[in-house]
Design a protein around this nucleic acid. Structure first.
Lengths: 336, 336
DNA sequence: GGTCTGACTGGTAACGTTTCCAAATATACC
DNA sequence: GGTATATTTGGAAACGTTACCAGTCAGACC
């Protein structure tokens, strides 16, 4: 590849002049600039990002750690990060978690990997990292933002919707249709936001006189497979319920598939309520009613916060993320 | 951040010695090495990637252009690229296409963006780029690999399954169950692999005495929404069919959802066959029978090819990608 | 004890940019 | 025409690292 020296030589100008034309800063006589421009095109010159980074101390890149890419939960987040970053002429380097073995180790490795790549900032997601891990990482790279999780000691760097409120919403949605016998498929107990939404849900039921021990509840792993198996187990247990709340859409879809196979009509016999309102919910059969989490807004706020930290970008940072219910076809009043 | 100079000074050694310890090349007396090691930890030193890149002329990073992230088609590809790259200690920078406006422009911008970031190589996907675009990009960055698309003039850099064969497979699957009245929802006509699979499908039907003009066919846009609408239009047109072939799973799931709403039993009244065998197919209701494309293998081969071009990695490059049918619940013999 | 070998060490140059400073040239004004 | 000012220009230094070269030192061998 051609360097700026080649350009300067070909155009018959000094190094400084060529640089000024390339970066567009400083004044150059129009005729000279044109000559340099021509040389640039002729040599197919592109400035070296590495050299610029070295000098400026900034790579204009942000590292993103995503625990996994399966399912439809993280992809819109990734999309939102990318577009927000691009609007500030930054770009994104992604590290994925892969397996299920040692998630925390993977997340640490991923983060370390990104830091070693000179990222100006870091965005991390997932439930496996501990507060002390974030603090330790912060010593190497203070520009860290956490999405969908809140650590008390660095709460201004954490962005998440209020999942307790989400759980309350979910309960209200089912109660408002008249359901009283309600089952739950929860997510992993290691996931704080799952714990919060279940807690909110149960609290709201309790407020309406439904005791926690009268609510059949199974815990699963957020996957459709897990939802399928839990639905099966719930039916096999002989539990009687007119509505099922699943802690995410993927499990809800799995449950839906099992009900279909078992000949149970949704929402005729059982209503099913999902959570997250992902794309998965839109075209399930029947289409899934789900608690909507404004993930895009949460993500944009987080990215803005990071850009402000890294570059004093002065971007607006939203802090309030109202949740709600997206009504589709899977929730109806209970059968008489 | 601390530099290697700080490390050398603190350890009381020369620059060269410190560098030797950091990079692990060359000989250093054990006692000295330990002293340097200690300084490294004390200062939290990490070598600057930019400086290394500048000197070595290689960034160890590969750019990936993905047209969109919606749906479940591209995410496993991304995952496969990432894990394959990481195995060679490389990493991935991603650029996404965003809207639907000018796809080609977006792809060009994305690719340019990646090249400007000093990527050692490029992986591109999608249907919008023209052969001449790739050639033009190749002048700036000769290490390009194209996934899921074949350009004749650079076919050794292109990796794709044989979609004509995929179409043939699809036809055989339906014919083998006894279907003779078959409808089709095709994808975008601008997508060459879609055109190939439809052509293969029709050719195989013709070989079994089913004329193309007796096959009701609609074209859609690969989305569930599109599949839903096409299924509706197909029913409204009064076309009679016992099986429906959809050119991808997303449209098939949309069609499934519409059939469910319209009270048409799948596979009792109509069988539905998908294509791509994505995760979407696994938990639809009913679970979707689909033509399996070995996307992971295709992707790994492409990445290996790129790594070989960039770093003479000497990795194995598969060229043969057999397609097949993954049988689930949505295809059965036609009603009597 | 002198020479030779080998391990170890320190400093310089280079990678490709941009930023600064000083010099050179052009322009304006009296 | 001479001075003051503004515009344009070229080159050196710096960013953080590694590769190379030359030098130091200790031990081994005769």
């Amino acid at each position: 590849m051609a360097t700026i020296k080649d350009v300067a030589r070909l155009a018959g100008v000094g190094l400084g002049t060529a640089s000024r034309v390339v970066s567009g800063k400083g004044s150059v006589a129009p005729a000279t600039a044109q000559r340099v421009q021509k040389a640039i095109e002729q040599l197919n010159f592109r400035p070296s990002h590495a050299a610029r980074s070295l000098l400026s101390g900034s790579t204009q890149m942000v590292g993103v750690y995503i625990p996994l890419l399966k399912g439809t939960f993280y992809t819109p987040i990734l999309q939102a990060i990318d577009s927000t970053l691009r609007a500030s002429r930054c770009y994104m380097v992604v590290a994925f978690g892969h397996g299920l073995d040692d998630e925390r180790q993977q997340a640490l490795e991923g983060a370390r990997f990104l830091i070693d790549r000179d990222c100006d900032g870091l965005i991390v997601m997932g439930n496996s990292l501990l507060e002390k891990d974030i603090v330790a990482l912060g010593r190497q790279q203070p520009n860290i933002v956490v999405l969908n999780r809140v650590f008390e000691s660095i709460s201004e760097q954490c962005f998440s919707a209020d999942h307790t409120q989400g759980g309350i919403c979910a309960a209200q949605a089912l109660l408002s249709k008249g359901h009283r016998r309600i089952a739950v498929i929860g997510g992993l107990r290691t996931s704080p936001d799952n714990v919060a939404r279940i807690a909110g849900f149960m609290a709201e039921l309790a407020r309406h006189g439904i005791a926690a021990d009268s609510v059949p509840m199974l815990e699963s792993d957020f996957s459709p497979e897990g939802g399928w198996a839990s639905a099966q187990a719930l039916l096999a247990s002989g539990a009687r319920f007119t509505a099922l709340f699943c802690a995410n859409d993927e499990m809800a879809v799995g449950a839906l598939a099992h009900f279909q196979q078992a000949g149970i009509a949704v929402p005729g016999q059982v209503s099913v309520l999902g959570y997250d309102d992902t794309q998965t919910a839109e075209f399930s059969a029947p289409r899934l009613t789900s608690v909507h989490i404004p993930l895009r807004e949460v993500t944009v706020a987080g990215v803005h916060c990071l850009l402000n930290r890294c570059y004093d970008a002065g971007l607006p940072v939203e802090r309030d993320f109202p949740v709600g219910v997206t009504w589709r076809a899977s929730v109806a009043p209970p059968p008489p």
